[in-house]
Design a protein around this nucleic acid. Sequence first.
DNA 1: ATCTAATCGAGACGGTACGTCGAGTCTTCCC
DNA 2: GGGAAGACTCGACGTACCGTCTCGATTAGAT
Lengths: 203, 203, 203, 203
Amino acid sequence: MPALSKGASEECVRGRGRPRDEVARARILEAALQLLEELGFASATTDAIAERAGASKATIYRWWPDKAAVLMEALRGTVTQDNPFPDTGNLRQDIRLQLENFISLLSGQRGRILKAFIAAAQSDEEVAAAFRSVWMKPRRDATKALLERHQQKGRLAKDLDLDLVLDLLYGPLYFRLLAGHGPLTPAFADAIAELALEGLPQG
Amino acid sequence: MPALSKGASEECVRGRGRPRDEVARARILEAALQLLEELGFASATTDAIAERAGASKATIYRWWPDKAAVLMEALRGTVTQDNPFPDTGNLRQDIRLQLENFISLLSGQRGRILKAFIAAAQSDEEVAAAFRSVWMKPRRDATKALLERHQQKGRLAKDLDLDLVLDLLYGPLYFRLLAGHGPLTPAFADAIAELALEGLPQG
Amino acid sequence: MPALSKGASEECVRGRGRPRDEVARARILEAALQLLEELGFASATTDAIAERAGASKATIYRWWPDKAAVLMEALRGTVTQDNPFPDTGNLRQDIRLQLENFISLLSGQRGRILKAFIAAAQSDEEVAAAFRSVWMKPRRDATKALLERHQQKGRLAKDLDLDLVLDLLYGPLYFRLLAGHGPLTPAFADAIAELALEGLPQG
Amino acid sequence: MPALSKGASEECVRGRGRPRDEVARARILEAALQLLEELGFASATTDAIAERAGASKATIYRWWPDKAAVLMEALRGTVTQDNPFPDTGNLRQDIRLQLENFISLLSGQRGRILKAFIAAAQSDEEVAAAFRSVWMKPRRDATKALLERHQQKGRLAKDLDLDLVLDLLYGPLYFRLLAGHGPLTPAFADAIAELALEGLPQG
DNA sequence: ATCTAATCGAGACGGTACGTCGAGTCTTCCC
DNA sequence: GGGAAGACTCGACGTACCGTCTCGATTAGAT
């Protein structure tokens, strides 16, 4: 996980020296998020983040490989909290809740930030890598685990490619977010869930 | 359209001085497009564009407000309709062909250009509007007409919201294009078509 | 004199085409002089001269080889003798009047022009020669004649090198004009005259 | 002293951050001097200085306000070293040595550079400010200190305005340097010193 | 109670691209 | 053919940001 902060919750062997200042880490992420919302991706400079956080650039670059990683982690931190992955035991309900949650996420401030990120990722492979590892993968893994539970309980065909299912479910939502050709409403999320579900081989 | 070149096809009253060098303008846009494809948005520098176009930076900045505007206009010139929309009479086959065609389009140079276009649209509503009207709408209208024919022939439920269907079909493809978390292969197109079809109420 | 305008008073063979517009030439030189006084040598751009003169840059570069030549010719037009050299019969008074007159000259528009002239002379021997013959020599000759009268009347040592005296008296004034490290006031002129006449008061 | 490099020999309180790289500073000044001598004032570009010094333009502009200030300090650095201000205890001898030293300085490569600087200063207030603060002021301060010692020892009137004295002594030398109407020989320096000290011999 | 090592804030560094400006040239139409 | 308008190339300017590095100061565990 090179794009992620190293320390965090890992099992540090607790070396000799001064330990990492977790308060500084939190201040940096908070400052990064503020600047991301205020100025956008390109204008949120590392110097500005360091200054607002009362940290030094060296501290930032000790724990994150580049600017994109900081902003990505700041973004992710604001999402995982308020985005519990429901497991009601009912496949249709789980999926609808997932998509509705995601729609409500995209509709707020986070949606704009996410758009800026994906835009930046198109012209910068580092940003793209950070986006995939910090944002996409954890969310997809969590949703995949949910679907796997449904598979194991027999509510979903066992040979189904879950990556495909995730693309079918989330693709339309990202599509509207980025192309802006239609509204991002809960009703849209439900309709997509409905269409997609009826096609899934419900073994 | 302030972000675009002023002159172009406008009704210039043919002022007194030396007229704009349209050849140089074309060379600049051509160079911009080449560099965009070769290096991406961020690495396509104005100096490089000027050098390859045999123009000077001053000329570029006389006609475009900044680098993004040059690249945007270069991009816009490539958006043309040259995709035959097949109509075989078989819904499944039509959809598969559509998606496979689109995949092959995205896989080439046009895919990279499209990515850059969508990226630019995220921070510029004018670009976004142009993208929707010049790229999205004609293509969606054509595909919608195809689906409507299938509806009239009874192969597709008559009360189906076709915009929803288009999002379900194309969303996953745009999603992989922009997020880059999976390959854009014909097999992927087929799999999406299959999943989507099985869910459509084939009344 | 390649640095000057070609036409002027030369015997033009009166070729086929439209003759040179002498009014435009005069407007260009007038504009050049104004801008030289207002902004200095570097900030008096050719674009500004052309705009103020209502001329085009092409016209300027048709008749002068470069910007310096235009400004030089504008400058040369202002070098005229209009300074009465007083002869009161009193050495001290004569010298003080001379220096005070010179100070008042330097303080006005002519001072700024003179600065520009001397600056140009540093990198152009032709300008330097013109400066010495057109400006320096007549003025020094006149002052030398005045001092010679004082020598003949016994008020000044007969074996005194008058060039040296002129440098001692005028050098400090030119120095402040060009280095700008102190004010060019009549009081300064008087003080220099006093010191030069009496020598440094040695405790 | 805004036109001067900040650090140098000042009593820095040794702030927290990384200290200024004095080696880089020396390399920049050395490169500036070389280019000044090779190409002259106008053609010694900041990019060339940075490249030859192995430094970056940002480093140059961090410590000097503009190109003129760098070149000025480079020039000054080469002079103050090999130009000790003598203090023999004899006023006349000190002054003669000072002026003779200055004449020998003006006669070499430095004289040409100095002329170019003063010329540039006439049309560029930034250069003028740099010239006064980097060249004039330190040299005048040093000579003033010398004269003050003579004042304190009673060899020079205590109420004498030393700025005036400096103009009387150095003005004639700068005058000949810039107007070029007479030779810059040691004999000239001696004659000026003699006249200034004793006053004009009034027959 | 030191010693040692890793951390911190501060901030200077090399590098790269930006967008601006002026000089001098060239190209069109108008007189 | 001369002149006004104004677009062009060239090249330097000074600025901004990135990611790296080097200080002195701080804070632990190890000796």
